[in-house]
Design a protein around this nucleic acid. Structure first.
Lengths: 218, 218
DNA sequence: AAAATAAATTAGGGACGCCTAAAAAACGAT
DNA sequence: ATCGTTTTTTAGGCGTCCCTAATTTATTTT
C-alpha cells in the first residue's frame, strides 16, 4: 500500500517521461510544488521499494512495477474526470483538481465498475487516452499544432489540462476535442498561427496555445 | 482545512452521540482502532480549533461548528454509498469501506452535483437519512425491532451498516429496507424473535439481529 | 584548467499522528 | 474511607514527510 505522497511522486515521474522530458529531481519538485531535498528523500524510498531507478543527474526511470502503478493512477484520474464531465455536468476546466483527490481512493472494484458504468471510454474529456485494466493505452499518431504547416487540415485530439486558463480560452474561441480546422498561415515574428475552423471564420492563436494543442490528420 | 484524522475523530464523536452513547476517549479509540492516548492528543487539537468541547470522564460534545462538519461528512458518506449501490451496482454490504475513503474528498460542488445527479435522495441504501446541504436530517419515528411486541406489524426502516455480516445475513433471509413483517413471538430464553414477512413464511431472528434493525409502524 | 553556476544530496530540525509505559484522576465496592 | 479497577492523561519516542542551510557533485563558462 502506497501513501498519497508516494503515489504523487510516481505519477510525476511518469508524467515527465511521458512528455519526453527527463525526470530530474528539480522538475519533480517543481511539479509537486515541493523542494528538491524532499524529492531526493522520496526517490530513495521508492527506489527501496523497487518502483523506480534513480541515477543523479540522469533522472529517474520507473520499473515495470512503478509503471504499472502509474498507469493505474492515470486510469483512475481520467475515469473520474470522464465521470465528472459526462455524468455530473462539470466543465472540462474544473475537473483536474477534484480528480487529483479521487484518484487516490484505492479500490479495484470501484474503478472496474466505474469504467463499465461509463461504457469503457478510451479517452477522457481532454482527449487523453485512458489506460484499460491491464494498463494498455490506445495510441494515435498526433502531433502538436505548432508543427503543422499552412494548408494542413487537422482535428483537435487532445489538450493539456494542467495549463492554467487554456481550457477556458479554448471554450471562448469555440474550440474543443474533435473540432476540425485548417492552418492558414504561420507568423515567424511571434510564432502565432492563423487557423480556420471547419465552420466559422478564421482567427489567430498565439504560440503558447498552439504549442499545447495535440492534433491528428483530418 | 482538516486532515483525514481530524475528520475521522469528529465523525466518531458524532456517531457515538447519535447512538445515544457518550463520546468517551476509550470509545472513540475503539471505534477508530487507535489508542486512548492518541485520542487525547486529537481531542486537545480539535478543542483548540473550537470544533468540540472535551471534559474528561464526561465525554466530548461537538460545537455547532464541529456538528456542521460532522453532518457534511455524513452527507458525503451516504451520498457516495447511494451512488455506489444505485449507479455502480455494488451490494449494500460492500460500500462502507469505499465510502469511508470517498467522504474525505473535499469539494463542495462535487457533492452538490452528486446530490442532484442522484435526485436529492433522503435515505441511503441502509435506510439512514442523508443530511441536505444545510445539514438538515429528515427524521422518522423508528424503534428497534427488539422493542416490538407480538402482534405488531412494522416495516424495516434502517440497518446498522457497520455490524459485520449483518447485511449479508439479511440478504440471505430476504429482508431489506421497506420489507413489512409482523412480530409473532418473543422468546425470553435467548431473546430471539419469530417474525413473518408480509410475503413468505415465518422464521426466527436472533437477539443480535433484532437489536440492529430499526423499524417503523407499517 | 580553474572558476562560476546549477543540480543534487546530506544534515538537522519541525509538525503530525501514532505508539508504549507510567502517572494521575475518577469511580465502585467493601 | 480506603483499596482496587477503570479511564484518562502525560511523558517520551518513532516514522513520515516536509523544510532550510550547508555541502558535494556535475556542468558550463572563461
Amino acid at each position: 500500500m502506497l501513501t498519497r505522497s508516494e503515489e504523487d511522486h510516481i505519477k510525476a515521474v511518469y508524467a515527465l517521461l511521458q512528455e519526453g522530458e527527463s525526470a530530474f529531481t528539480k522538475d519533480i519538485a517543481e511539479r509537486l510544488r515541493t523542494k528538491a531535498s524532499s524529492v531526493t528523500d522520496m526517490l530513495k524510498k521508492l527506489s527501496g521499494k523497487s518502483l523506480l531507478k534513480h541515477e543523479p543527474y540522469y533522472g529517474a526511470k520507473l520499473t515495470a512495477k512503478g509503471q504499472a502503478i502509474a498507469l493505474q493512477l492515470v486510469r483512475r484520474h481520467r475515469l473520474w474526470e470522464t465521470f465528472l464531465v459526462e455524468r455530473l455536468g462539470f466543465g472540462w476546466d474544473e475537473v483536474h483538481e477534484v480528480a487529483e483527490q479521487m484518484e487516490h481512493v484505492a479500490n479495484e472494484k470501484l474503478i472496474d465498475k466505474l469504467d463499465e458504468y461509463l461504457g469503457h471510454p478510451h479517452f477522457d474529456p481532454h482527449g487523453d487516452p485512458i489506460p484499460d485494466k491491464q494498463g494498455k493505452l490506445r495510441t494515435r499518431k498526433t502531433k502538436r499544432l505548432n508543427t503543422c504547416k499552412p494548408g494542413e487540415s487537422v482535428r483537435i485530439a487532445a489538450v493539456s489540462e494542467t495549463t492554467d486558463g487554456l481550457l477556458r480560452l479554448l471554450d471562448a474561441k469555440g474550440l474543443r476535442i474533435g473540432t476540425t480546422l485548417s492552418v492558414q498561415d504561420v507568423h515567424a515574428f511571434d510564432g502565432s498561427m492563423d487557423i480556420k475552423p471547419q465552420r466559422g471564420s478564421a482567427f489567430s492563436l498565439s504560440k503558447d496555445v498552439i504549442h499545447h494543442l495535440q492534433v491528428e490528420n483530418a
